[in-house]
Design a protein around this nucleic acid. Structure first.
Lengths: 145, 145
DNA sequence: GTAAGAGTTCAAGTGCACTTGAAGTCAAGG
DNA sequence: CCTTGACTTCAAGTGCACTTGAACTCTTAC
C-alpha cells in the first residue's frame, strides 16, 4: 500500500501520460529506479514533483527552466519545511510580479473603455513601449518585465 | 508621414519580425493590400492589432483562438469606444479569472511554508485534485478553470 | 502453454509558432 | 549598366513538448 509506484500508477494519479513521464525523466526532471524486471519504480514524492512541474509550466516556464527549479527540491527524502520555505521564497515574488502585471493590464484595459483608445501613443494597453519588442523568437514567457 | 506602412516599418515599430507578420497574415490575423510593385502596405491600425495579438499570446491563447478575438476588432476603421467596450468586456473576465487563479496559488504556496507540506492530501498547491488531469496533450493554457 | 496486460527502448511523427533559405522582382543611386 | 536593399513566394527547417508506433520482455491468469 505504501509501496513505490509504477509508471502507470504515477500517470493515473498525476494525470500526466506515461510517455510524458519518461520524457521528463529523460530531461532529468524526475528520477526512478528499476525493479527486478526492469520496470520503473517511483517514490511517492514524484507526484509532488510532477505537480510542481505542471504548475511551473502553467507559469510559462520551459522544461529546461523548470529543471533548475526542481533541482532545488530534495529527491532522496520528503521535502521538509525548510525546503518549502526556500521554494516558496523563490516562487512568491515571481507569482506576485505576474499577478501585478496582469492587474496593471486589466486596469489599463478598463481605462480604455473610457478613452476610446484613439491614440496609440496614449494607450497603455496597446502601446506598452518596447515591452513586446525585446524578446527573442518563439512564444514569449508569461513571466517577464 | 501619415502614409501606410511597409512590412519592414511594421516589423520595426511592433518589434515583430517580417516573417512573423507574413505568417499572421497567412493565418488571417492581420490584413494588407499591395502597392503597384506587389509589396504589402499596412494601415497604421495594424500596429494596434499586432500589439493585441502579442498581448493575447501572453495570456496563453493560441493564434487560432486569437483570430476569433481580433475578428471582433474592425479592420477598416479606427476602433471606437464601442469596439473597445466590447473587447474589454470580453477580456476583463478572462483576466480576472486568471488573476484570481494565480492569487489562490500564491496563497496556497504561502500556506505551505507553515504546513511543511508533508501530506499530498492536505496540500492545496501540489494536490489540486483533477485540476491538472483534465487537459489534453501539449502545453496547457494558462487560462483555464 | 498461451494470451492479456503492463512495462521496456528507440525512432519517427505531431502541432504550434515561427525562421531560414533559395530564387526572383523592383526602384533608386552611383 | 549594375549593384544594393527591400521586398516577393514557397518549401523546408527549428525548438519545444510531447505522442505514437514497432518490436520486445515480463508477470499473471486461465
Amino acid at each position: 500500500m505504501d509501496a513505490e509506484l509504477s509508471i502507470g500508477a504515477v500517470a493515473e494519479r498525476s494525470g500526466v501520460a506515461s510517455s510524458a513521464l519518461r520524457f521528463y525523466e529523460d530531461r532529468g526532471l524526475i528520477h526512478s529506479h528499476r525493479n527486478s524486471s526492469g520496470h520503473r519504480r517511483y517514490r511517492r514524492s514524484v507526484l509532488r514533483r510532477v505537480a510542481f512541474i505542471r504548475f511551473a509550466q502553467q507559469m510559462g516556464l520551459t522544461l529546461a527552466e523548470i529543471r533548475g527549479l526542481v533541482d532545488e527540491l530534495p529527491d532522496n527524502r520528503v521535502p521538509d519545511a525548510d525546503d518549502w520555505a526556500r521554494v516558496s521564497a523563490a516562487w512568491t515574488p515571481l507569482l506576485d510580479a505576474h499577478i501585478e502585471r496582469l492587474q496593471r493590464l486589466r486596469d489599463r484595459l478598463t481605462g480604455c473603455i473610457g478613452c476610446g483608445c484613439l491614440s496609440m501613443k496614449r494607450c497603455g494597453v496597446l502601446n506598452p513601449g518596447d515591452a513586446l519588442a525585446h524578446a527573442g523568437p518563439g512564444p514569449r514567457l508569461v513571466i517577464d518585465g
